[in-house]
Design a protein around this nucleic acid. Structure first.
Lengths: 232, 232
DNA sequence: CCAATTGATTGACATTTATCAACCGGGTGA
DNA sequence: TCACCCGGTTGATAAATGTCAATCAATTGG
């Protein structure tokens, strides 16, 4: 593994405070691999042999049931995924596929569990990360259960805008069909939902979103810290 | 706190392995209180001052937004709730109310965080609990996004049946209006959904459910380990 | 015992969302 | 260059779900 990557991973919240020796030991067993786009990295139901760390690219976490499929989340660098399965030594609940060419570090789950037992700082970091993940899903659950699809889209746009630094024009960061799935609707409906936001000053050209009237959209979307704040 | 309760709490996965001294220290700062039914214990957005341990009774975790409300989960003895908020020292994402007369131990969050730093076993237990909670929400998310309301109800009935030990006749364990909210539908729709399951041999009399044809219902519901298994 | 309350159910209807089919338009590759 | 492919959009329609009002049934409290 190149030094720069080693350092990048080391700087992750999850690893930044643990003992050097322990980190080195984790990395010794790990290997980094490049994957092309659209590769299925893991399938739900499989045993969780590796903790994955996305170094570059992006990964879609999705689930299937009875022939249906739904995007649950998108992983962006640099962060880990399927931590909970690794910790519990339980089967993955979600599948993962690369959205683009991606570089991923694979750390054997049993190493993670072993170091977890040996390194208090690492344990603390894992707890923080898990609590964070848990709260994210709860927020997403609230989004789904308390809002209509139009409201979800409006709030999604506001979050995306905030991530971009707040400009009135910004780009969607992934395919609309995936966005639809993430928001829990069909692509057709997403199209119509964008139209439904026109009265609130939203215009769409391909992947480029313009928020014409911030106040209008916010009044409609009614974003809430307890749902839409990424931190908190 | 009575000895029997002390022991009951001590036996929780979360506390069972930690050092005696640490547990005693946690309990010293804790206090136990009885609440009548329908009392709001915590409100979303509040700072998380206490880790709650439900000793007896039952508690509804719910969320609100823009005048709407949705039940997120039901807590049953003996278990803790709002662990993630306590750990992160972040505001509650959900509100909690007693469903019936309940007895609850309140442990100051800062004590939990302090002992967490001092006791490796406790830290491990917290990780296990958080990972469990996380996976539960993911399952619930999959249930919501991948299934229709009829399918959710069918699978809920099968899970409830399993919890009761698998009899063909069993009781719902809470109000239908709450069940509706948990399943993400209106009470009216739940009524109709029960009718919709009649062709699969489900009959309802008040709170008493009869599953006339197990195979039929299972064929329709298509329960999945990765959504419906409480453990796993 | 009865009035009042509460939760559940039903019917009629509106709204939302999904489905299916067609079409558009910008790449891509032969 | 041009046919094709793919993602996105549109329209027509169907299905699912929510809303509102009325009613029913069980329960409670006077």
């Amino acid at each position: 593994m190149p030094d720069s990557e080693y350092r990048d991973i080391r700087e992750l919240e999850l690893f930044s405070r643990m003992a050097d020796a322990h980190f080195a030991s984790l990395m010794r067993g790990a290997y980094v691999q490049n994957f092309p786009a659209q590769i299925e990295l893991i399938a739900e139901g499989e045993p969780s042999d590796f903790l994955h760390v996305l170094v570059s690219g992006s990964v879609d976490l999705f689930s299937t049931w009875n022939g249906r499929e739904s995007s649950m989340a998108t992983v962006r660098p640099i962060s880990t995924f399927i931590l909970a399965a690794t910790i519990k030594d339980a089967p993955y609940l979600m599948s993962a596929r690369t959205l683009e060419k991606s570089r991923i570090a694979l750390i054997p789950s049993q190493d993670v569990r072993a170091i977890f037992d040996a390194d208090g700082e690492f344990a603390r970091a894992i707890v923080a990360e898990l609590a964070q993940c848990y709260r994210s899903v709860i927020k997403s659950q609230k989004d789904l259960k308390l809002r209509t699809s139009l409201e979800r889209l409006a709030n999604y746009l506001l979050r995306q805008q905030a991530r971009a630094g707040g400009p009135s024009v910004f780009a969607l960061d992934f395919e609309k069909r995936r966005l639809a799935s993430v928001l829990g609707m069909t692509p057709e409906n997403l199209s119509r939902a964008f139209k439904g936001l026109q009265p609130y000053g939203v215009t769409v050209a391909g992947t480029r979103i313009t928020i014409g009237n911030q106040a209008d959209l916010e009044y409609f979307a009614k974003p809430s810290q307890l749902i839409d704040d990424v931190s908190a």
